[in-house]
Simulated scan of single mutants.
Amino acid sequence: MKKRNKFKHFLYLILALAMLVYALPLISFKEGWSWASAFGVAWSLFAFLVIGAHLHYLLGVDEEKQKTLERIRAAKLREWQLKWPEDTQRRQENM
């Protein structure tokens, strides 16, 4: 499942790069700033944002964070499980 998910991100990255390579030469600044050139710049910035997001996922920047969070969750679960028998014992003593 994980390989398919990464393949999807890789495919979208390639598509975004292809669109950007096609569109960048068509943006013209010869006549100064116009609505068309402003739209082209905004579109290019969004395309770079999409490319950056897919690269971020593909390079696995979040995997290290996920592993750290998983270790913290496991430690908290162990603490809770150790504390739980004490709580049940207290409840039984209070009855």
Rank of each mutant, 00 (worst) to 15 (best):
M1S: 15
K2T: 14
K2N: 11
K3Q: 15
K3Y: 09
R4Q: 07
K6N: 09
F7G: 07
H9S: 04
F10C: 02
F10S: 08
L11T: 02
L11F: 04
L11W: 04
L11D: 03
L11S: 06
Y12A: 11
Y12F: 12
Y12N: 11
Y12Q: 11
L13E: 02
L13Y: 01
I14E: 01
I14C: 03
L17W: 01
A18I: 03
M19G: 14
M19T: 06
M19R: 05
V21G: 03
A23C: 06
A23G: 03
L24N: 09
L24M: 11
L24Y: 05
P25N: 12
L26M: 10
I27Q: 00
I27A: 03
S28C: 04
S28G: 04
F29G: 03
F29D: 01
F29A: 05
K30V: 15
K30M: 10
E31Y: 08
G32N: 07
W33P: 15
W35N: 15
W35L: 12
A36Q: 15
A36L: 13
A36Y: 13
A38H: 02
F39Y: 13
F39I: 07
G40C: 06
G40W: 02
A42K: 10
W43C: 07
W43T: 09
W43M: 12
S44I: 05
S44E: 01
L45P: 04
L45D: 09
F46S: 14
F46M: 14
A47S: 09
A47R: 03
A47I: 01
A47K: 01
L49E: 09
L49G: 15
V50C: 08
I51G: 02
G52Q: 00
A53F: 10
A53C: 09
A53R: 07
H54E: 06
H54T: 00
H54Q: 07
L55V: 06
Y57I: 06
Y57T: 04
L58Y: 00
L58F: 03
L58T: 02
L59W: 05
L59I: 01
L59F: 05
L59S: 01
L59D: 06
G60E: 00
G60P: 00
V61E: 01
V61N: 00
V61I: 12
E63G: 05
E63L: 13
E63I: 08
E64P: 01
K65D: 03
K65Y: 08
K67M: 09
T68K: 15
T68M: 14
L69I: 10
L69V: 07
L69A: 12
E70A: 14
E70K: 10
E70D: 15
R71H: 12
I72N: 06
I72V: 13
R73M: 06
R73A: 11
R73I: 10
A74L: 08
A74I: 06
A75N: 11
L77A: 13
L77I: 10
R78E: 08
R78I: 04
E79C: 10
E79D: 13
W80C: 12
Q81M: 08
Q81A: 04
Q81D: 02
L82M: 07
L82I: 07
K83S: 09
K83Y: 09
W84R: 08
W84N: 13
W84A: 14
P85W: 00
E86P: 00
E86V: 10
D87T: 14
D87M: 15
D87R: 15
D87P: 01
T88N: 09
T88K: 12
Q89G: 05
R90W: 02
R90N: 05
R90Q: 12
R90E: 02
R91V: 10
Q92R: 14
Q92S: 13
Q92K: 14
M95R: 13
